[in-house]
Design a protein around this nucleic acid. Structure first.
Lengths: 212, 212
DNA sequence: TTCGCTACCGGGAATTTTCCCGTTGGAAAT
DNA sequence: ATTTCCAACGGGAAAATTCCCGGTAGCGAA
């Protein structure tokens, strides 16, 4: 009997996935959480520790990447699996770097989920080639984006950049000079490979740096 | 026995929701589809017509609103229920106007889903007050936005506005004058209540007018 | 026909964004 | 102690955006 933990902010999906896992026969859901924080808090309270935890990427309060990092550090022998609906490179890299051993899409077939869980439990990893996730390409992409990590201040600016505000207003609320804002913009344009504020906002959304 | 139809682009959710509905005891899933188009094509082919169809809002190929409109016109006695994860006013209004008799969120509890389906089947409607969906407020909001409907051409422009392109480039690919583009922008600024292109792009995303 | 409406087009100017050119001060490296 | 690096700051100018002012052409209704 394999013990499973689940974290997803959609109750309906969470509960119905539990049913599905039980229907597989060999799995038992020992932990359910509606966000990353709840997941982290519940793990120490369960006596039947999960072997594998399926973690949704997009969750309120604490998202999948943050939860994955924390759990990977505290419980290294729990296998963490990212479960998401978006399959863009950046989020996949993000989750794998956070400590996931597999990345599953929500539109995979139940049979493949079962196969994936079995492989993860026996071999420790699973590579869904059907879901066009090419690890070699991803690793190359990670090489490329190395040194292009976004700083904390840039992220703070990015939030305001995805808004109706002008740079002058942004500079005012951030208590910085307009020139400094200029610097952040330039830097982000380079890192995200765009050349206008709209492109910046769109790419930030696409990479999950900004929500909504 | 109540016959149910399902449309959702995430296989895992689709299949596990089917399991959950069967576990309720009184429901049978007679139709599954991965997008709106597939749903519309499968309805005429099923001999056990569904009483209720749960339709996801965000789907590829043909989205929930389009599918709802088409089905509501062809099969007026099938109850259509929108099932989505985002609960912003615009999408809800959109689905209700398309012909849905209820709007359910994906993070509702299974018990509430069962209750909702029962009410929809017996009374013909369901209002989830727990999900802060206030119909009176929505109707008022619809009054407010009346005459603010986005035209086909404006939508075409909107796609390009959510891009790294300049207006000049957009005018060129749309084979229109820059002034005409100017007009579309002005009109959309007013309709979406924004005052910059970034705000426009963000609001378009928020209202589901543009994907990604 | 005349009126009103809508889609399309244009000039011009204020504002904002984008992109150059710099300086300074402080922290880290050598 | 000196260099090196980098975040923060600034001037100025080209480009893009925003927002006015208008016009013409088509088209259905009065």
């Amino acid at each position: 009997m394999i013990h499973i933990g689940l974290a997803d902010d959609h109750q309906l999906f969470l509960k119905s996935l539990t049913l599905m896992l039980h229907s597989f026969g060999n799995y038992m859901v020992v932990l359910e959480a509606l966000n990353g924080k709840e997941l982290c808090e519940k793990i120490p309270l369960t006596q039947l520790k999960p072997d594998i935890i399926l973690i949704d990427v997009n969750m309120p309060v604490m998202d999948g990447a943050a939860a994955t990092k924390q759990i990977a550090a505290l419980y290294p022998n729990i296998k963490l699996v990212a479960l998401s609906m978006n399959n863009d490179d950046h989020t996949i890299i993000n989750m794998l770097r956070a400590g996931c051993c597999a990345y599953l899409l929500k539109d995979t077939h139940p049979d493949e989920l079962e196969k994936a869980l079995h492989e993860i439990h026996t071999k420790g990893y699973y590579n869904a080639d059907a879901a066009n996730i090419n690890f070699r390409r991803l690793l190359f992409a990670e090489q490329q984006q190395d040194g292009h990590r976004i700083t904390e201040k840039e992220l703070g600016f990015l939030k305001y950049a995805c808004t109706d505000m002008t740079y002058k207003q942004i500079a005012h609320v951030m208590k910085l000079s307009e020139r400094t804002i200029d610097g952040y913009r330039e830097s982000l344009f380079g890192k995200l490979q765009v050349q206008s504020r709209v492109g910046l906002a769109m790419e930030a959304l696409r990479r999950g740096l900004i929500k909504l």
